[in-house]
Design a protein around this nucleic acid. Structure first.
Lengths: 220, 220
DNA sequence: GTCAGTTGACAAGCAGCGCTGTCACACATC
DNA sequence: GATGTGTGACAGCGCTGCTTGTCAACTGAC
C-alpha cells in the first residue's frame, strides 16, 4: 500500500512531499466541513468530499484511511477550533463570576454563529455513526464537567458533588437546544438577549440542591 | 398496485382481512421499534424490519408504502404513547404547581425508563432523515410551548413572552440531555433524585428575566 | 532528453439496499 | 375435491456507495 513515497519523495510545484500531503489534507477537511454542513453526516459521501476538494479518491484514502476517518477528524477539528476560541475568551474575561459566565457563553455563541457550518457540525446535524456519537457524547460530557467545576469553585462546595453534575448536564444540553432552535429560526431574539438569558439561567440554576430537603430517596 | 383486496377479502385463519392487515402492521411497527432502538434510524433497513417481524417485504410495502413511512409512523406511535402516559399523570396530579411539575416530570421519566427503547427512539438515537428531524423538532417545540404556557400561568405573566419561551427551550433540551446521560450511565443517581433535581431546576429557572435590566439590545 | 516520481481521470469490483415480481404452497369456500 | 385467494420464500433489477486499480499526462532530477 505504500507504493508512492517508499523511496524518494521529491518536491513538486515548489512544495515538498510533506507540504503537499498536508495541503491536501486541509483541502479535504475543508471540503468535508462544507459537505457535512450541507447534507449531514450520513449523506456525506467520499465522492462528494473529493469533488468539493477537487482531489481524487486516492488522496482521500491516503489522508484519512476511510470514510469514517474524515468524519471523526472533522468533528475533532471543529470542536478544537471552538474550544480554543472559548478558552481564549475565558482567559481575558473579568474576574467577576457573572461577567465571566457571560463572556464564556458569548464566546461560544459567537464561535458558532460566525460560521454556521460549525453550528451544524457540532449541534444541528445529527450523527448516526456510533463512533461519531461517542465523540459528541464525550465532548458534551467534558463541557458539562468543566461547568460543574466552575460552579463548585464559585459556590465553594466540595468537588464531585451530584447537584452540580446534574445541573451542568441540563444546562449544557439546554444551551445546545436553544442554540439549535435559534439558528433554525424557531426562536427570534438578538444575540445579546440570548447570551444574557442563558447567563442568567446558569446563575439561577447553580444554587439548586436536590436530595436533602424534600421527598427523595437519594443518598447523602 | 391494488392487486389484492380489490374483490373479495376473505377471512383467513379466523381473522378478517382487516384484522390481518392490522396485526401485520402492529407486528411491523413493533419490529421497527426493536430494530431502530438497536441500530439507529439510518441503519434500519426494510429487510431488517421484515425479518424481525417475520413477514415478507410485500406486507411491509402494503402497510407503509416505503421505508420512510415506517420510520415516521414509529416515531409518531412512540411519541403518542408517551404523551398519553404523561397527560394521564398530569390529570391525576395534585393541584399544587410544584407537586404537579414533579408528577409530570416523573411520569415522563417513567415512560422512557420503563421501556428503554422509547428513550432511544425519542432521545438517544439521532435521525438523519430530514422529515424525521422535522418531526422531532416539532415535538420538542410543542413540549417547550406547553412548558411555557404552564410557567406563564404559574407566574401570572402575559402570554407569548420571550423569557418563558427561551427558558422552556433550555429546560426541554436540558431535560432530554440529562435523561440521555442518565440512561447511558454517565450520571449515576436514583430516579427520585433525578426527578427532584429537574423539578427544582424548573422552578428555579421560571422567574429568570432577560433583556430589561442589564447589557442587552433586545426588544420586549 | 531520459527516467522516475507525481498527479488526475476514470473504470471496475464488490456489497448493500429499496423495491418489484414470480411461484409454489396453505387455506377457505363451494 | 375443485377453485381461487392469501401467504411466504426468494430471485432479481436498478442504483448507490466504498474502495482499489489502471493508465496517460505532467513535473522535476540527472
Amino acid at each position: 500500500m505504500w507504493a508512492m513515497s517508499t523511496t524518494s519523495a521529491r518536491p513538486y510545484r515548489g512544495q515538498s512531499a510533506e507540504e503537499r500531503r498536508a495541503a491536501r489534507r486541509v483541502a479535504l477537511l475543508d471540503a468535508a466541513l462544507e459537505v457535512v454542513a450541507d447534507k449531514g453526516w450520513n449523506s456525506t459521501t467520499v465522492r462528494d468530499v473529493c469533488q468539493s476538494a477537487k482531489l481524487t479518491e486516492r488522496y482521500f484514502y491516503e489522508a484519512f484511511g476511510d470514510r469514517q476517518g474524515v468524519l471523526l477528524a472533522l468533528f475533532d477539528h471543529v470542536a478544537h477550533e471552538v474550544t480554543v476560541l472559548v478558552l481564549d475568551a475565558v482567559k481575558t474575561a473579568p474576574e467577576d463570576a457573572t461577567e465571566r459566565s457571560r463572556a464564556t457563553i458569548g464566546a461560544f455563541v459567537d464561535a458558532l454563529a460566525d460560521d454556521p457550518r460549525r453550528m451544524r457540525i457540532l449541534i444541528t446535524e445529527a450523527p448516526d455513526d456510533a463512533a461519531l456519537q461517542e465523540r459528541r457524547r464525550f465532548a458534551v460530557l467534558a463541557f458539562a464537567r468543566l461547568l460543574q467545576q466552575q460552579a463548585e469553585a464559585f459556590y465553594g462546595v466540595p468537588g464531585g458533588n451530584k447537584d452540580a453534575e446534574l445541573t451542568s448536564h441540563v444546562l449544557v444540553g439546554g444551551f445546545g437546544q436553544l442554540l439549535m432552535a435559534w439558528q433554525l429560526g424557531d426562536v427570534e431574539v438578538s444575540r445579546e438577549r440570548l447570551v444574557d438569558h442563558v447567563s442568567k439561567l446558569f446563575v439561577a440554576a447553580a444554587p439548586v440542591r436536590s436530595g436533602d430537603q424534600s421527598s427523595s430517596t437519594a443518598a447523602r
